[in-house]
Amino acid sequence: MTRTGSKATFVSAVVPETASRQARLAAHASVVGLRRINGLLPRNRVGIQAGRGLIAGVMAAFGPPLPGTRVDTVRSGRVRGEWVRAAGVEQGERAIYYIHGSGYVVCSARTHRGLASRLSKLTGLPVFLVDYRLAPEHRFPAAADDIAAGYRWLLDNGHRPEDLVIGGDSAGGHLAMDLLLQNQRAGTPQPAGVFMFSPLMDLTLTLAERRDRELPDPMAPALTGRRLIELYTEGQQPDSPRLRLDIPPGSALPPLLVQASAGEMLAGDAELLRDMAVAAGVRCDLELWPGRIHVFQALPLLVPEAVPALRRTREFISSALADAARAKVS
Rank of each mutant, 00 (worst) to 15 (best):
R52C: 09
H28N: 02
V329P: 00
R21P: 01
E82N: 06
L164C: 05
H294F: 10
I96E: 03
D163T: 14
G225C: 07
T206G: 13
G53H: 07
S240L: 12
G150E: 04
S198G: 11
E287V: 03
N183G: 08
L266I: 14
R110Q: 15
R52L: 12
R312T: 07
N183A: 14
A149E: 14
G88P: 03
A322N: 13
G88L: 11
A143V: 07
Y104P: 04
F62G: 03
T69S: 02
D169W: 01
A95V: 12
P67Y: 06
L245W: 05
R3Q: 13
P238H: 13
R75V: 13
L243N: 02
R78G: 08
L134T: 02
L256N: 02
Q259T: 12
V31T: 14
F128T: 04
W83Y: 08
G68K: 04
G168P: 01
P304K: 09
R24E: 15
L154S: 07
P241C: 12
R52F: 08
E93Q: 15
H138P: 01
Y232D: 07
R80F: 00
G5D: 14
A144T: 12
G124N: 09
M59I: 00
L134F: 04
R94N: 03
Y98A: 02
F140C: 15
A171R: 04
L310P: 04
T9A: 09
L256V: 03
M219S: 12
P218Q: 11
